[in-house]
Design a protein around this nucleic acid. Sequence first.
DNA 1: TTTAAATATGCAAATTATTTGCATATACGT
DNA 2: ACGTATATGCAAATAATTTGCATATTTAAA
Lengths: 142, 142
Amino acid sequence: MALHTKEQLTAVIKSAGLRLTDHRLAILATLARVKQPVTVYELVDTLRKKENIDQATVYRNLTSLHEAGLLRRLDFNHGHAHYELETGEASHQLVCNSCETVEKIEGISIDSAVQKMLKRSKKFKNATTHSIEIYGVCKHCA
Amino acid sequence: MALHTKEQLTAVIKSAGLRLTDHRLAILATLARVKQPVTVYELVDTLRKKENIDQATVYRNLTSLHEAGLLRRLDFNHGHAHYELETGEASHQLVCNSCETVEKIEGISIDSAVQKMLKRSKKFKNATTHSIEIYGVCKHCA
DNA sequence: TTTAAATATGCAAATTATTTGCATATACGT
DNA sequence: ACGTATATGCAAATAATTTGCATATTTAAA
């Protein structure tokens, strides 16, 4: 189910054991609306059009939401983190080696391969999430 | 084929169009020997046991070797890059959410899924490499 | 082999992303 | 409404990475 209404987002925050604050709600709502992995810079930029918020607050909330399992944190070798809602589904994206383009691909399962990898592991028996990054050159840069 | 001898590594550097320097060779040789993704810090530390080398030199060489396609750059949300030899094979690793343990898993193919993703893409038609990171909690942290 | 131009290196300083200390403000169970 | 734990803003600190610049090394060509 998509998280859309303020009520749903509020419930999610509370049931994660986190306090409800305007900033925390706004951050989660923005990520729910955008659907693509977003940088902290972009997030701060977006939020500041509607409210006064410090970047330290954004960083701290991203950390708490991530630790609570509500967000996924991604890095595409761009030198800064990207965040998206944690849906429980795997996350797959195509990353341009030339510019910073990232294209999210949905609806493809690699679960059996993941299970195989876990079986082969000596140190890991369970996994919470996984992500695939496929690196290449996008149409625009080609 | 595994890259082991100094001659092989030298040939690889030259055919990539890069100049042959002792530092560049040592960096590539270290990554060829270690086989696991390595942080810049670890690499500098290892290299300094055998030679005098500045971290700026290491960073610059990692960039040039990466741009030449000889290295793969990975990030496990640890806040610093990891490098490994680019073998042309996909790279799969299990990443602990609690400590910085990374376990590399080999011999499992997800090529058909990658092909599906590329087919579905509007912006990408080719891919050079891909990597999967599976996040969970390792035995030690559990 | 010598030479010249391009590239590599070391060192220190700069940049960028992210985190932290601290004083104040807010959330929420009682 | 009250008290305590948590959140926030602001400025300053940290950590990873990059850059400027003077010097050294590599390499192709004479």
